[in-house]
Structures are given as C-alpha cells and as structure tokens.
Design a protein around this nucleic acid. Structure first.
Lengths: 142, 142
DNA sequence: ACGGTAATCACCCGAAAGTATGATTTTGCA
DNA sequence: TGCAAAATCATACTTTCGGGTGATTACCGT
C-alpha cells in the first residue's frame, strides 16, 4: 500500500517528462528526420514498458508468504506451561514414547511422566494424543 | 503458461492494428485537426493501458489458493488401508481412547485394537501418536 | 462353489501410559 | 536472604495400549 503513492508519482513524473521532452524535440529534430510512423512506434514501446512496470508495481503486493508458524506465546503464558513441559510436549507430538523422550532430555521416565501430568492438567486433557491435538489447535506447537 | 502465447498474440495484433490505423488516419484526419501533442498523449494512454493489461495477464498466474485438504487417495490405496481402518485412524487423531472409539463405532475394544494393529503395520509405526503424525504427513487424514 | 479380503470378536500377556503422593534440588525474583 | 515456582526423582498402583494368535461371518469376484 505504501508503494502505491510512490508508483503513481513516478509514473506521473515519467509521463510528464516524456511529454515535455517529446514536445520539445518534436518540432526541432525528429519530425523532420524520423517518419511519424517510427515516432509513434517509439512512443508505443516506451509507454507499454511504463504500463508493464506500473502494473507490476501496482499488483505485486501479492507476495507469496509461506505461513510462518507463530507460536502462541500468550496461550503458553496463560496456561503457565513451563519451558521443560513445552519440550516434552514437542517430543510427544513427534510420536516419541516416554522412554525416548526421557533419553533425549537426559531425565528419568518419572520426570517425563510428571511433566506430562502437569501438561494434561494445564491443557485439560487426559491423554497424550489429545494433548497434541489441543496444543496444535492452540498453536502452542507446530 | 498456456495463456502466454495468447496474450502475446493479442498484444501483437492490437499493436499492429493500432499502428496500421494510426498510420492510415494520421495523414488524412487527425494531424490537421489535433495537435501532435494531443496525438502523442493518446498514444501514450492507449499503450499504457495495453502494457497494464499485458502485464496483468502475464503475471496473474499467481492465483491465491486456500489449500483445500485433498485426501491422498493414492496413498490410502497403495497402503491398502480399509474404510474401517480409516475411520479408526481419524478418531485416534482426535485423541480418543480405544474405548471411546469402540463406543462410537459400535464395536468391541478388541475390534478397534485389531484395526489399529493393521494400521500400525501398514503405516510402519509402533504407536498411535506416530500413526497420526505419519498419516497427516501423508495427507491420509487432516 | 471357491478363495481372498474385510470386519468382527476373544483371550492372553507384557509394555507403556497415566495417577497419586511425596521428597529434594535449582532457580529466579522480590 | 527467602520464598515460590520449576525441575528432578522415586515408589506404588491402575488403566490403556499393543502384539500375538485364532476364530467366525460376510461379501466380492472368478
């Protein structure tokens, strides 16, 4: 949007300058040396280019944006989910077992289970699959 | 891509026709009635329009498509996942327990477990969470 | 009529997950 | 410094899952 004014301005200026230059040179040099046909052709080319350029500028505010995952920090804070709990949650979402998670985080299975219990309470769910579902819908995890 | 040739063709034809018309009328009517300045202005406007149009045609192959979930039928067929198994898979993905799934489908827990076993085998996973993960990545489920 | 596949169910057993409770240590912050 | 939250671990118990095996029924196409 902020580009629109600039684009229009540049386009207008270009047009004005061109008209001025053409008008200026027209009677003095070109008309007598170049045929009107060629002159018209040049004008056509130039303004086609300008049209293309302006069109591109005016429409290219449709930039393809691959939806970047934005973690819902607010939800995390609101639910008081701790850093460690989040780590566990992410690993659960990857389909890892409690044992595998524990090995990755260098803690005992008991610790992992404790984190999970707290997570279930905070997310108000009963099972890991539900936790993953809910966490994804809340954009707590990807 | 298939539009490109058409666009160029139309553009070229328009240009040719215009040049021809201009050349034709130039000496007969306009030049003596309209000033060259106005004439140039008209050409500029016309070809700006053409440039805009061509530019739009040439760049508008970027259609914003809101990714509609398309179930990967091929994968389902390739993996030989049956209808019933798919139902179970979807319910698992919703975080339901085997018991809950069984109640929904009016079958015994054993049946649900059998379906799940087959699913794990076909999806080459060990746990329900992994199955959900994989099924989603294969676009077998949403 | 036969063979294959899908769906259904049962039983058993071990592994994994989840619950409850309590304890210790670490850490961040007032 | 001291307190609260977070992280860690343990023990014990229940529930759920998952694997293995086998059986019955039904449907579908040859």
């Amino acid at each position: 949007m902020f580009d629109l004014k600039k684009t229009i301005l540049i386009y207008g200026l270009s047009l004005a300058v061109l008209v001025f230059l053409l008008e200026y040179f027209e009677y003095r040099y070109f008309v007598h040396e170049l045929s009107t046909e060629v002159f018209v052709f040049l004008i056509a080319i130039i303004f086609t280019g300008l049209g293309l350029w302006a069109g591109k500028k005016l429409t290219n505010q449709t930039k393809i944006e691959p939806p970047p995952f934005e973690q819902n920090e607010k939800a995390i804070r609101y639910l008081k989910i701790s850093e460690r709990e989040l780590e566990v949650l992410e690993l659960v979402a990857q389909g890892l077992s409690n044992k595998q998670i524990s090995d990755k985080l260098f803690v005992s299975v008991n610790t992992t289970k404790t984190h999970l219990s707290h997570l279930y309470e905070k997310l108000d769910v009963k099972r890991r699959t539900q936790a993953v579902e809910k966490a994804k819908s809340l954009k707590i995890i990807e």
